[in-house]
Design a protein around this nucleic acid. Structure first.
Length: 354
DNA sequence: GTTCTAGAAC
DNA sequence: GTTCTAGAAC
């Protein structure tokens, strides 16, 4: 199986591996080193087909992405081949793609990714959940049906790119921590349930006794990308969540659960939190953790679906980020509590030793 | 997202 | 002195 690399033609960063059949979201951020506000954090979704030697390019951001001189258009998709030039936004930040059997040969090809203006940094793969999956997709695949038909779901592991030891620059790549869920959801060891539309995994750092994540196979970066047509999928995610609670939580009649989304998630790929309301977990450590589940930063699934039915999109109120800085307040009785350790002691008074 | 740690708060 | 938080680094 060939591998596909996305090469920054102005040498902003080292080539980004595009695993066969995996939708990869790119935009402003450490991965591309692009800081230009005209470029969305989620500007593009690219999916490589290493069999057909093509890459689908979907524009997610508002400002124009182009392939050669052809504009993609927001929500639209264009196919790109080796030799063509992609501009991330506003005819800036040129990229090309390269398919090679031997990944190392890509860097010495005519793509001029050697001798770049800016030296490539080393990638940071600092935890196992940060690594990208090496193989299977979900049953229906991680790309939507409008993209080019992809062949087998088996793909080669991401190629190892030679780290440049002559630089101390830190350029984060596809293994960036924010992509960790995409890798976890593909890992059979993490999967609690899966069907043709969704997968359920345990949260790696649960903030309560029971804490699962329900993720769609379809690539949806965050709640911002949700539209009216996703309502049915979201209702299915709720149903699956209810089933997992019933099946995997022996105390489901005693414990209260909430199903919802973070208004501003840190991790890419939309995920429904299914969390018991005991918040009894050593992984719950700070104010941000607490407030992200107990203030309006946490939006109930029903509310999200309601917004989509009414407005066709999810709007996050201004100042939502500030909710994370609010004083600690018990979600059961409303008491304000000064520190996390005291809050944890207080919570025991509500669980009555259970 | 987590980890680490300086320094604020006690 | 210890505990705890907040922000940088990853």
């Amino acid at each position: 199986m060939a591998v596909c690399l996305l090469i920054s033609k102005d040498g902003r960063h080292k080539p980004i591996n595009l695993p066969h059949g995996h939708a990869v979201i790119l935009g402003r951020g450490p991965e591309t080193t692009i800081k230009d506000k005209a470029c969305s954090r989620e500007q593009l979704e690219v999916t490589a087909d290493c069999n057909r030697k093509c890459v689908s390019v979907k524009q997610l951001g508002a400002n124009p992405t182009s392939v050669d001189s052809q504009m993609v258009g927001k929500g639209n998709l264009l196919m790109m081949r080796a030799g063509q030039q992609l501009h991330m936004v506003n005819a800036l930040y040129p990229y090309s793609v390269c398919f090679k059997e031997d990944p190392s040969s890509c860097q010495s090809s005519t793509e001029k990714c050697v001798g770049a203006k800016r030296p490539y940094g080393s990638s940071s793969l600092d935890g196992d959940h940060h690594k990208e999956p090496s193989g299977s997709r979900g049953p229906r695949g991680a790309q939507d049906s409008t993209q080019c038909e992809l062949g087998e779901s088996t793909s080669s592991p991401p190629s190892k790119l030679k780290p440049n030891t002559h630089t101390t620059d830190k350029v984060e790549t596809f293994g960036h921590w924010s992509q960790g869920l995409k890798s976890s959801m593909q890992d059979p060891k993490m999967q609690v349930y899966k069907d043709d539309r969704v997968v359920v995994i345990k949260d790696k750092y649960p903030k309560a006794r029971y804490h699962w994540l329900v993720l769609p196979w379809e690539s949806i970066p965050s709640v911002k990308a949700l539209r009216r047509e996703h309502c049915d999928l979201l209702r299915h995610m709720e149903q699956v969540a209810d089933g997992v609670v019933e099946q995997h939580c022996p105390d489901h009649n005693l414990l209260k659960f909430r199903l919802g989304y973070h208004a501003i998630p840190s991790m890419s790929q939309v995920h429904l939190h299914v969390i018991s309301q005991d918040f009894d977990s050593p992984c719950l450590k700070n104010k941000k953790h607490w407030n992200s589940f107990t203030t309006n930063y946490f939006i109930d699934s029903k509310e999200i679906i309601g917004m989509l039915e009414k407005d066709g999109r999810v709007t996050v109120k201004e100042g939502t980020e500030d909710l994370l800085k609010l004083n600690l307040r018990c979600h059961v009785c409303g008491a304000e509590i000064s520190t996390i350790p005291k809050l944890k002691e207080h919570l025991k008074t509500h669980t009555h030793g259970r």
